[in-house]
Amino acid sequence: MEINIKNVSMTYPNGKQALKNLSLWLRSPSLVGLLGPNGAGKSTLMKLLSAALLPTSGVIEINGQPLPQAEKSLKARLGYLPQDFGLFDELTVEQFLEYMATLKGISSRGSTSSPSSAASHNTFASRHSTMSHHTTTVKDAIRAVNLEKNAKSRIRTLSGGQRQRTGIAQALLGSPDFLILDEPTVGLDPEERIRFRNLFSRAAQDRLVLLSTHIIEDVQSVCNQLIVMNHGKILFSGTPEELIQSASGHVGVFWEKEAQNNHTAPRPLCITEQPLHVTNQPLHVTNQTLHITARINTANGVRCRAVADTLPPFAQPEEPSLEDAYLYLISREVTQ
């Protein structure tokens, strides 16, 4: 599957411009991580790719065909997990997935693979069968999200995490060629997060997966491509290694006390609890900007981690992590 986004802009009826002349090329197999702060345009991009919106200008091509014409075939090959969604509470998990499978036309269309049973890909039955494929697909999806015990439970009785897993299961139904997952691991416990991370990684072996998340760990270990967005523009598109490389020499640690002793700088401010949210109050050090990304209380004082175009003398250079690199990228845009 190949998606080509050409010079796409999107302005909402209220005048808010969510995307600005955005161009992007995505091709399967790939697991693409989509990063960016709130309001960056990630959700708008995903809505455009799921044909929930049409761009104000520009073109989105699906396998070379403009999206409006390719909408039906896109939806037939799309698994979509939005950030905010609802379920039919009166149905059981199995009934709900059967419902969604039917809407997707899985019973008649058949599938090419199953996310959780790669071993069955090459069997004669799974390649050619339409009979009972529906049921099999539903069971596969339930198994994939580890909801076998809740398959017969009414959705209204599920916990938040189980509902989220049900949502993931519906996206996985029929092994779609294109998976869009918006914050899929929200509400899941760490063990499940790791499990799903691996699941998405496996799924991306032969298809295109677009994963939007605030949790850097989720993308760090599994994505082979990262897209960083802010203010409706793409700041970076490449591999995680390339993003990390771009931050090399721009990450450092220092003692807060040492920084305060530096008279050229005002008192550093606390960062937010969200690790991905860089503080908007930069620390100015001799005409340069230092963005604190972490602040740890230790027995010897407060140890700070920061990114900057040029590190101040009191900061010791550190090997950047993906989170550092992401924050460095965003901080540069904030500074500019």
Binding site: A52, K72, Y80, P82, G86, L87, F88, L103, G105, G167
Partner: peptide, 14 residues
Amino acid sequence: GRSRMDVLVDAAVS
């Protein structure tokens, strides 16, 4: 629409 179910359904079918 009220239960946000339409987000899932609309992504699957027109």
